[in-house]
Design a binder for these strands. Sequence first.
DNA 1: GACAAGCAGATTGTCGACAATCTAACAAGA
DNA 2: TCTTGTTAGATTGTCGACAATCTGCTTGTC
Lengths: 229, 229
Amino acid sequence: MAKLDFSPIADTTRRAEIVALLRRAILTGQLEPGQKLNELRISEQMRVSRAPLREAMRELVQEGILTSIPYAGTFVIDVTAKDIIDAYSLNKVLDEFAIELAWPQRDPRFFDELDRRHEAVKQATRALDTTRQIETALQLHGLIYEWADNSVLLETWQRLTSRLQMYFALHQRARNEPVPAEDVHETYVALLKGADMRAAQRHAREHIDLDFEELLAYARGLEKRASKN
Amino acid sequence: MAKLDFSPIADTTRRAEIVALLRRAILTGQLEPGQKLNELRISEQMRVSRAPLREAMRELVQEGILTSIPYAGTFVIDVTAKDIIDAYSLNKVLDEFAIELAWPQRDPRFFDELDRRHEAVKQATRALDTTRQIETALQLHGLIYEWADNSVLLETWQRLTSRLQMYFALHQRARNEPVPAEDVHETYVALLKGADMRAAQRHAREHIDLDFEELLAYARGLEKRASKN
DNA sequence: GACAAGCAGATTGTCGACAATCTAACAAGA
DNA sequence: TCTTGTTAGATTGTCGACAATCTGCTTGTC
């Protein structure tokens, strides 16, 4: 038998496609925090009945980016400064762990993939495609999790990623500036290729802290706005 | 106005009740790993239509204790030795983080609750109620997460707890022995009341390692059985 | 006997309609 | 004017039926 690794057949259920559509809409900020999702309206727009839509929404609730109140509705989660702080502080801990696990697993394929994803970030940056820049940066970041060979950790990271992506997207939208042209991942990639694991872990923390500051400023703005209502 | 804090009204949707029923059945081992959930059969047993049942199953899939294959069915997750190792190694990292966050938050209410939950474990142990013993032990363990004041961390822990509870239940079922009468939490509780945070973190790791060894033996048995099929 | 095509039964995915519940506007009474 | 009761409309929750898909068996062919 020829040694071929086929990619899995795509899930072709409406539900899966709806999940993808909704997730994208939320993570890019098209659906704003706190906004209510009207089932009838959305199902009509998507040309789909409410059953698969509701199942899709249930998944996203469990994924943590929607929240549901019985007989009242399903809403995009609200984002507070504390949420962002919480997500980031957990992210630091997980990063450190992921690097530790992934470190001995690094192989040529790892380094190839590292370069590939880094290149994708740079390309998105050059193209001034903000959304894609966030996506690719998180994918670059996620590589250590994929290589850590710990399924529960990977799942946890993926859940966290949803939120981080949402936070970044909101931040970018709010400040409404052109994309930062700087490449902040150069050092990170170099350290992951190097021999000093502790240094890589340390940098991951500091690297995160950088973007964190910007996000926090945005979050504080959110809180002020909320307290006025 | 009188200063009363009312507890929120219970979610009274069929869906929520189905989720609770199914989760309990899975976490106590009544539904075995790998087993298929027939929608029609279950919906008839519960006197409920398939719509809320399917939504409930979607939630549990996202919670990580069910797995779904389009047009094939929804199954209780399979448990492998690696899954257990992965869950536990992540748990260690999270524990350390949770203790660090919760430490400065400890107050009289914390210590009261600590004793209350510890007492619940001892009571379940005396009553030889295995299921309840697992539940209460995990609730005792979860206290540091509730006090850590980090919503994302708490969510993550709760997801992990589902699996841990399932693993323990399977383990207990498999060995089919009377419950261990020993109280292994005495030291843990004492350390959480003490002044040495590092010691508490260290003990949490070792304490976990203990039960881990037993679980692993069970998991290895599972793997052997699987390889024969 | 081996193998592929095709059919029947069972199961999952989706739909449209109905029931239960919430919200907001309005009316009635103190 | 403020509070309380009522009601209409909109929205979510649930149901039963139908469509799409899978699985295992049968049948026919070599």
